[in-house]
Computed example of a mutant assay.
Amino acid sequence: MNQGQKKLEGLDYVLLTLVIAAAIICFLPIWYTVAVSLSDKSAVAAGQVNFVPVGFTWISYMTLLSESAFFQAFGISIQRVLLGGLINFVLTILVAYPLSQRDEDFPGRRIYVWILIFSMLFNGGLIPTFLTVKALGLMNSIWALVLPMAVPVFNVILLTNFFRSIPRELREAGVVDGANQWYLMLRIYVPLALPALATITLFSIVGHWNAFFDGFIYMNRPEHYPLQTYIQQLVVQINMQNLDAATIIELSKVSNKTLNAAKIMISMIPILLIYPFLQRYFIHGIMIGSVKE
């Protein structure tokens, strides 16, 4: 028994060492990006920056934050995350609940499941999607950013499998007591599916926040760009007019490499703030929701 405990303790130390090593490997690129964003452009161009800033300067962040367009784009991204996340949340539940029922309770269920799977594997493509959005008059509006991805099929499948893992006896007890489908869904299934709902909410938030390509496609004016699209097209442009010598010297320390590093760090902050609150549900939700019984 003692030898078994010693072996187990030794295995725990090995696993702990591997986890710490993996955490360090994941953290080092972030720290390197921070060092680049705080370094002088000449040091970055010369490859002198490792994990300590060289020629420490805040000018890359000051350049980003001094633009009013940055805060406008930030507000559009917040609006997109809130609106798009809410739409994803509601529609995912409304689709996943009926698909989680038995065939005798929902005739044709398998047909709808295959339609969803087919739509996840195959789609009309970029040009038909663009033409559809344009024909609907959604160009240059927030709806063009949230409606094309209103029903994330992967999230639907994840939540459907989670709903199917809930004991059917709970549903039968509710039916015996006279509960209708809305009551069963909102008062039994949804409260028990908090881990899965937290997981798909995290997926939706990250997906909407990191998306930038659709901003280029559906927005014709820069003032309508979400944050990721804005910082993707932002390059170093120094207007020498109406600038004093000290300001020109400071701006000369900015390059596209240091500015891109600052972009990455600023765009990561909201996700880093949200993730700790959802992380405890994440593993449990994705493990159960990914298994089909």
Rank of each mutant, 00 (worst) to 15 (best):
M1K: 01
N2Y: 02
N2R: 10
K7Q: 13
L11N: 14
L16F: 03
T17M: 13
I20Q: 11
A23S: 14
A23P: 00
I24D: 09
I24S: 09
I25L: 15
F27A: 15
L28C: 09
I30G: 05
W31V: 15
S37Y: 00
D40N: 12
K41T: 13
S42L: 09
A46E: 10
F51C: 07
V52W: 07
G55V: 08
G55F: 02
W58F: 11
I59Q: 05
M62V: 12
T63Q: 02
L64Y: 01
S66A: 14
S68H: 08
F70T: 11
Q72L: 14
F74M: 15
G75P: 03
I78E: 06
Q79L: 15
R80P: 01
V81Y: 03
V81F: 10
L83C: 14
G84M: 01
V90F: 12
Y97A: 10
P98C: 12
L99T: 10
S100A: 14
D105M: 06
R110I: 08
F118H: 03
F122V: 11
N123S: 15
N123P: 01
L126V: 14
L126Y: 10
T132R: 09
V133S: 01
K134C: 06
A135G: 15
L136H: 08
M139C: 06
M139K: 06
I142L: 14
I142A: 05
L145G: 03
F154Y: 13
I157R: 01
L158M: 05
N161W: 00
N161K: 07
F163M: 13
F163Q: 02
R164Q: 12
I166R: 05
I166S: 04
R168S: 12
A173G: 02
D177A: 14
G178A: 11
G178D: 10
G178Y: 04
W182T: 13
Y183Q: 13
L184T: 03
M185W: 00
R187D: 13
Y189T: 03
V190H: 00
L192R: 11
A193L: 07
L194E: 08
P195K: 05
P195F: 00
I200F: 00
I205Y: 00
W209G: 05
A211K: 06
G215T: 01
G215S: 08
G215K: 00
I217C: 11
Y218K: 11
Y218R: 07
M219P: 01
H224K: 13
H224F: 11
H224C: 09
H224E: 10
P226E: 13
Q232M: 13
V236A: 08
Q237T: 12
Q237W: 04
N239K: 07
N239Q: 11
N242V: 08
N242E: 12
L243H: 05
I248G: 02
I249T: 06
E250P: 01
S252C: 12
S252W: 03
L259S: 03
N260Y: 06
I266Y: 03
P270I: 05
P270K: 06
I274A: 05
F277L: 13
F277I: 07
F277G: 07
Q279W: 03
I286C: 04
G289E: 02
V291C: 11
K292F: 04
E293S: 15
